[in-house]
């Protein structure tokens, strides 16, 4: 940019025109540096609560919560983590969370894939109507369906059972819609060629469509898993005993400890829940961001 004025002619006019451009370039550079500083400061504000959380969780009870906070605990201790289990069965809760999230995600992926394939590749009577009904259901908030479902689960004796949480999550209308949109963007030539070769729908779906739909599938997997893993509303209604609770509901059980002695232990428990997510995020950051961006834009 700054060179353009000189190389274009070297005449007086060119110089005069170029001069303000040079200054604007410099100003822009200063602007970007200021902007960078502002962004870094803002980023620090965003992560300060998390840094405080993690450092406090490895601080001894006697030294924790001093003001000004000690940002570097000396010496760091893991004792608080050892105490979590005396308050809540955190290992069991993590296992419950994993079971619920894996089953819900796998179930929703399977049902969504099959339905999305039918909606994008098979013309069948009632298909369009059905699809419209499903789309309309996107507007139904869970708060409306949760009350009858609570009554249903109570009748079936499934209250305080993990199935009450993962079973209803095995159908995901958004997932169907999202995958159908993606399938529709895959050229039909491929599956028509396979059909001529005698391949059935299942083979076309699993051998041709799914490999091509990997970006959409992984985005949806992250989206579904994250949603079930972090869900509080649903499990807080259906799960009642500590042994059945998922991590978010279990964490809130620690509320009673607020202000009392073991606040550091609560911090350790929150950290134990947040840290694995942070590590996964730092490794798969791109996938996380792309998942949210794509599922959001197409919703």
């Amino acid at each position: 940019m700054t060179e353009s004025g000189h190389s274009s002619g070297g005449g007086m006019t060119a110089r005069l025109v170029a001069a303000p451009r040079v200054r604007r370039g410099a100003r822009q550079k200063v602007g970007d540096i200021v902007l960078s500083v502002v962004l870094i400061v803002l980023s620090l504000f965003m992560i300060v609560p998390l840094v405080w959380l993690i450092t406090t969780s490895v601080t001894t009870r006697a030294e924790a919560f001093q003001l000004p906070p000690r940002w570097i605990p000396t010496p760091p201790t893991l004792a608080n983590y050892a105490e979590i289990n005396s308050l809540i069965p955190i290992g069991r809760m993590a296992l419950n969370s994993l079971i619920v999230s894996v089953l819900a995600t796998a179930g929703a992926l399977l049902t969504s894939t099959l339905a999305a394939y039918a909606f994008s590749r098979i013309r069948f009577r009632g298909g369009n109507t059905l699809f419209s009904v499903l789309l309309a259901a996107l507007m139904v908030p869970v708060q409306l369906t949760v009350i009858p479902l609570f009554i249903l689960m109570r009748t079936l004796g499934l209250v305080d059972n993990l199935a009450a949480v993962w079973l209803p999550a095995t159908v995901n209308v958004f997932g169907i819609f999202f995958l159908r949109q993606y399938f529709a963007s895959i050229p039909r030539d491929l599956d028509e060629a396979a059909r001529i070769d005698g391949a059935g729908h299942l083979r076309i779906l699993f051998q041709i469509m799914l490999p091509l739909a990997m970006p959409a599938l992984s985005a949806l997997t992250i989206f579904l898993f994250e949603a079930t893993w972090n869900n509080y509303f649903w499990p807080s209604i259906f799960l009642q005993s500590n042994e059945q609770m998922t991590l978010p509901v279990g964490l809130v059980q620690l509320q009673g400890a607020v202000g009392g002695g073991p606040a550091v232990v609560v911090f350790a428990a929150i950290t134990a829940v947040v840290l694995p997510v942070l590590i996964l995020f730092l490794i798969f950051q791109r996938s996380f961001v792309e998942s949210i961006a794509s599922t959001g834009l197409k919703a």
């Binding site: 099959l114 039918a118 369906t145």
Partner: peptide, 28 residues
């Protein structure tokens, strides 16, 4: 055959949808 295949593919989603979304919606 195509009708059959279509409904076969959507049936798991539709059944679950009726039990866990549409039914509760009407019930509410």
């Amino acid at each position: 055959r195509s009708n059959l295949a279509g409904w076969f593919f959507v049936s798991p989603a539709v059944l679950l949808f009726i039990v866990f979304i549409a039914g509760p919606f009407v019930a509410a």
